[in-house]
Amino acid sequence: MNEEIKAIWKSLFDWVMGNGPRPENEVIPDEPPPDLPFTRKPKDKYSRFHEATLKERYNQWLEIHGLHMFSSLYSGISVLTCIVIVSLLLATVSELPSLSDERNLANNEIIRRYVERGGKETGAQNIVAGLILNYRAFNTFGESAVLFTAAVSVLMLLGASRRNNADDEQSMKGNDSGKNFMQRGPPSVRLHTFRRDDAILRGTASISIPVILIMGCVIIINGHLLSGGAILSTALILCANAYDFERVHKFFNEQIFITITSTSLMIYALSNIFNGGLILLPNICIGLIVAGTLYGFYALLSEGEI
């Protein structure tokens, strides 16, 4: 019985950790002696027999087990925290009022006004689009700014370092002792390359890219926010995969990426400041920002450049 439970537990553990199936006659080797990253060179100070003092033994023990102990302590604490948080939240959400309850404070005049007068006041067909583009436009501006921040950060981390690696090394030489020692990734090796002359993919792409583009434009103009931009970026990603990355690179390089993102965000910010209740212009701007940044993310993460 006990063995069975152990076997079930093992298979569950394997499944969770993503290990492959275990062979029947598996022999688990003895644990190799642990690497000792913190061990200093041994000191032969003592010529005669010397019994280790408590402190020395403690230090020895700590060097072998310290990292392991710290990590188990950390995981213990985090498991405890998670359990506490989850049980507190379980107790909380079971007490929360439901929205159909008349006494619920959330059932207030705000959503009623959004639903009843939203269409008239904002001119939006879709209440949610009216909500995020007009009633709560500042939040949506913040959200595009988050996308912009992430795009700039990723570009700085991945794009800027690989493009002019040689220049960097020239100008940074000898500034910090840590730098000589640093290992950089090879400048222009693609992390993940596969053959790009796939006939099926190409055939599909040649039909579907125009459809996707039209679909994206229609959605952007019709005001279902964001998905339009994401669909446009899908077309670009498909193009980069089916044909060649260089081909997309010709008309969508870093300069254009930055220009499109910044300009649309700028127009969006200005339309936010001088708000005239416009809904089409912000919609197009957000669509362009999302399309640009999502394709930028894809290109930077998979190719290392735009």
Binding site: L99, N107, I110, I111, R112, Y114, V115, G118, I127, V128, L131, I132, R136, N139, T140, G142, E143, S144, V146, L147, L225, L226, V290
Partner: peptide, 14 residues
């Protein structure tokens, strides 16, 4: 009345 959480979730997803 569905709108407010939908708007917040849209923002949050991004």
């Amino acid at each position: 009345y569905p709108p407010v959480p939908a708007g917040l979730i849209l923002t949050g997803i991004v």
